[in-house]
Amino acid sequence: PEAADLRALARHLYEAYLKYFPLTKAKARAILSGKSGDNVPFVIHDIKSLMEGEQLINNGQTSFQEQQIATAGHGVTHTFTHCNIGSEPPDGVELRFFYSCQSRSAEAVREVTEFAKSIPGFVNLDLNDQVTLLKYGVIEVLILMMSPLMNKDGTLISYGQIFMTREFLKSLRKPFCQMLEPKFDFSVKFNTLELDDSDMALFLAVIILSGDRPGLLNVKPIEQLQETVLHSLELHLKINHPDSLQLFAKVLQKMTDLRQMVTDHVQLIQLLKKTEVDMFLHPLLQEIMKDLY
């Protein structure tokens, strides 16, 4: 019966994952390997193709962008509606791309929040602790979720409609060119574990339910929830990857890398805030990053 409960939990989290995350690993890998039929991504590899790619997105997703802004709260409409193609000189390209990333990240935070709420027991935790778990866990989750979108040559963005090359990202001015390189290095290694979406769903829940986040008020119920999800993940990996030895341990070891990447990422954002006079940080991301590490 206990194993049956753990299997039910794995199924439940996988269903929630499919409900809240629009671009699954299965879809992303199909696009990256050219097996998605007509769904061929537009490739951004230089400034000219970046301009064309932006136009493609702006033409198709105005209402979506408005929706993102509404989700984000007050004071951002002006800034984000000015992120359109051709409205700024080419040297503003990095900041403009950075704003697009921020918009998508804010939307992704909403998706992760909904996923967290679907973890059995999460919404019964102290509300302050729910905030703390999300504050500390969400960037780790977002970075982890970039892995299925990446290969050694580039990354899918904009829900898989665009493939941006790693070389182009490296050609941006400092420190923008440094922002995604560590994520590529991590992703290439992480992807060799060959986790699928059902594995990822459980792993994301384990990350969110970390009982050692600073400032938690009531650690015990969080650790109890995490222990159950850990058991479910261990069993699921054994069934789903019977030939992959020590996969459970290898997956858990990635949590250390993720924490370090978040620390480095937040430091880069702080640097940007100091050096870029025109930089505007999304209010939701500001909340999350303030006093983080």
């Binding site: 709260g73 709420k117 059995p120 302050n128 905030v131 703390t132 504050k135 400032g215 939701l284 999350i288």
Partner: peptide, 21 residues
């Protein structure tokens, strides 16, 4: 803490699309 994280708090409290447990 939730006072310093109003948007996050709102996302957590928003009941428009919760999964029924």
């Amino acid at each position: 803490l939730k006072e310093k994280h109003k948007i996050l708090h709102r996302l957590l409290q928003n009941s428009t699309s919760p999964v029924e447990l």
